[in-house]
Design a protein around this nucleic acid. Structure first.
Lengths: 213, 213
DNA sequence: CTGTTAAGTGAACATGCGTACACTGAAAAT
DNA sequence: ATTTTCAGTGTACGCATGTTCACTTAACAG
């Protein structure tokens, strides 16, 4: 066998699985997940096509694993930012900084979500929608604890959470597409993100009178 | 030949070309443009695969034609709304109504833009980016004529135009994904679009003091 | 009326695909 | 020490694809 030596079976299987996930993520960057073939992924992962089936029953199952992995990155970002002391001092500026940094560090995951959210097919696309919906609800819980928001109705918080997530996705898309080594563009995206968040917060006060519909 | 009779050669060729465009647009709705094959499109258009080449040199060329067609729809929407008397009375409400109506009427075109903007490949993706950039500049010219905006710097107008276009695309995505016969959802999307536009307009006043960076 | 043009046809091809199957050999279990 | 397990291998298959080429035949030009 072509396995590296000195590892337990279980550890080696895990490594190969990770190689498949990484291969699919990398190939998806250029071609989109739905474009890449099982054989293509296997080649990139350094295994023979049939070995793929020892880890995933189909490409679709691999896609769902990538959704899970990508959203784990997203959730880790929220968890880390809740621990970051800067967030309490200035939540808007800190959030913009964190978003840009984390998206740059995990470009493949955020690109996967941005691309497959609309371009993907079948279960992968549905899974991303579902995860995004879940994420809106989770962020709503975080937002509800903020000083300026604690009195709002849960419906309003949920709605604002949706706005934040939509803008976050949109800003993440911009970072993903940003050419490397363009601190000017990065600053511009951060400023845009900051401004949008301020707009949302400022404007929300007026929203109540706007409701009947 | 399997051509309908009584038409000139030129007219018949035009019809077949339109059948190919329509076939590709319809198949793209379910599978995404990059997924569908030349043979698939030919079958749906009612021609033999090789006849495809009488109209397009490749699928990529067909994709570029779809970009052109889709943005023609978008531009027509702007032109029509400039003629609409309601727009002068209440530009925000009228714009939200027009956006939802036109996107519903041309779902395939807006879905194509939304999907291929990120999920597409190669020249098609680049062409969409380019058209969107152009569109931002064009909308900036329209916006610059509005009473509340006429004094703004062209940079500011361009930036606000970018915000409007991003939100328009985002709202169009929501309409595209909206299940049919859900007037409640439609109303909700319209309200969201309205509110976002108000936020942008209200908040812009504060932006000046925000600039140094 | 006659010859030319060109949109659409149909057979043929090389290639890449997903997957079935029998296999190997090192790690794990006995 | 022997057997079992199972991640990874290699071959083989049927199928859909893009593209080639020689063809038909109705519309057009003279």
């Amino acid at each position: 066998m072509a396995m590296e030596q000195g590892f337990s079976r279980q550890r080696q299987k895990e490594r190969t699985r990770e190689a498949i996930l990484a291969a699919a993520l990398e190939l998806s960057l250029e071609h989109g997940f739905a474009q890449i073939s099982l054989r293509h992924v296997a080649r990139q992962a350094g295994i023979v096509p049939t070995a793929f089936y020892r880890h995933f029953a189909s490409m679709e199952e691999l896609g769902l694993a990538l959704v899970e992995q990508s959203f784990a990155t997203l959730r880790q970002m929220i968890r880390d930012s809740q621990r970051d002391p800067h967030v309490f001092a200035n939540i808007i500026d800190a959030s913009a900084d964190i978003l840009v940094r984390v998206v740059k560090e995990n470009r493949e995951h955020f690109a996967f979500i941005a691309r497959e959210r609309f371009g993907g097919q079948g279960l992968v696309r549905l899974a991303i929608r579902h995860e995004l919906d879940l994420f809106v609800s989770e962020l709503a819980i975080v937002l509800a604890r903020l000083p300026n928001i604690e009195n709002w109705s849960s419906d309003d918080v949920h709605m604002v959470s949706g706005l934040f997530v939509r803008n976050m996705v949109s800003n993440a898309e911009q970072v993903v597409e940003m050419p490397a080594n363009r601190p000017d563009l990065e600053q511009q995206i951060k400023n845009g993100a900051r401004r949008q968040m301020r707009l949302i917060v400022i404007g929300f006060k007026d929203w109540q009178s706007d409701a009947p519909q």
